[in-house]
Design a protein around this nucleic acid. Structure first.
Lengths: 179, 179
DNA sequence: CTCCTTTATGTCATTATTGACATATAAACA
DNA sequence: TGTTTATATGTCAATAATGACATAAAGGAG
């Protein structure tokens, strides 16, 4: 079973969700398209790690809502105990920046400006996410502990916010360099 | 032509390198194995974007040293002008942290400790890289400008250093949370 | 003298991921 | 009324990336 499969199981420990919802919620932490997720859910279902029910909706198309089974939780615990793969990052921008001397300052500034907009939008999304976590929690977020349901999500969004702040700081620094 | 191919061309704008060296030098910014790089280099050679010479070595096995051609540089400039793909990050740890409540504090701490060691080693490597860039530069690094040969590498390693510092800061923060 | 590691290049099967195609419901908009 | 957007699920071909296999030269450790 691949990493994304375990990632889907991870999400399902908190809420039962449809494939579409899983796709939306896993995006910030593991980019994947629906064309990858639907087949994996079918696999997980065949193995008995998840189960689903058809949920009719009046305002939207019907959906299949998946839940994790006890067997799925066992598989998850086994996976967490195993050694963790190193993170993989692939950023086309870094390859372009490496040979940025090939183009003029103006083009370089534009390239960086596009990325800055991307980071700002991302930061905005993480801020909204953090608000949503706070709304669903009785405790103030900085008092959450490992046993609390929202703990994992909180510390991850905190990490993501720290990262995007660093990225934005670098953008500012680069603007100075390209003045 | 895929992004990695352009990445290889990017590296070759600064130095002529063998496939093995390219693999080592592109790693910090785009993870790729030799089994992906060698076929791409053959492709690039067929298209006339790079050329190579056999270089015999006495202390090590002989190698093929690739250089970028004028045609390759033109291709690179075209690629830089195109819209840049958004960065892709896949970190198995984040998926595990999401459902960290499934395991006890001790196991969680161990998992994070392994990652912290990874970040520290990475930071050490970037420090060495920065030293090496300084050694090859006449100017102090903070005075480098877009026209300077080492500029791209310098700003990238600076970004990477900022990122790994943020990651290490998060690890410290997590240690407090898991006390 | 043998084993291990690093350097060095390559192929190939498998897996992971994307992008295109396909279909359908419902709301919003013009 | 027709168009677009978001929701929702799915398949399949093509591409990207990895892991295993293969070979070889040179140096160092034991």
């Amino acid at each position: 079973m691949n990493t994304l499969s375990y990632g889907l199981l991870s999400l399902l420990t908190k809420n039962s969700r449809s494939g579409y919802e899983l796709m939306q919620h896993i995006q910030p932490f593991w980019s994947a398209k629906h064309s990858q997720i639907y087949p994996l859910l079918a696999q997980l279902e065949q193995k008995g790690h998840v189960a689903f029910v058809h949920v009719p909706q009046s305002d939207k198309p019907d959906k299949k809502v998946y839940s994790i089974t006890e067997q799925g939780k066992d598989a998850l615990r086994g996976w967490i105990a195993e050694p963790t793969d190193e993170p993989v990052t692939r950023d086309e921008l870094s390859l372009k920046v490496y040979c940025i001397g090939l183009v003029d300052k103006e083009q370089a500034r534009k390239m960086l400006a596009v990325r800055e907009v991307y980071y700002k939008k991302k930061k905005e999304r993480f801020n909204l996410l953090m608000d949503k976590i706070q709304q669903g929690s009785e405790k103030p977020l900085d008092q959450l502990e490992i046993g609390d349901d929202a703990f994992g999500m909180y510390v991850l969004v905190h990490k993501a916010t720290m990262k995007v702040d660093t990225d934005l700081y670098w953008c500012e620094w680069m603007k100075e360099k390209l003045k």
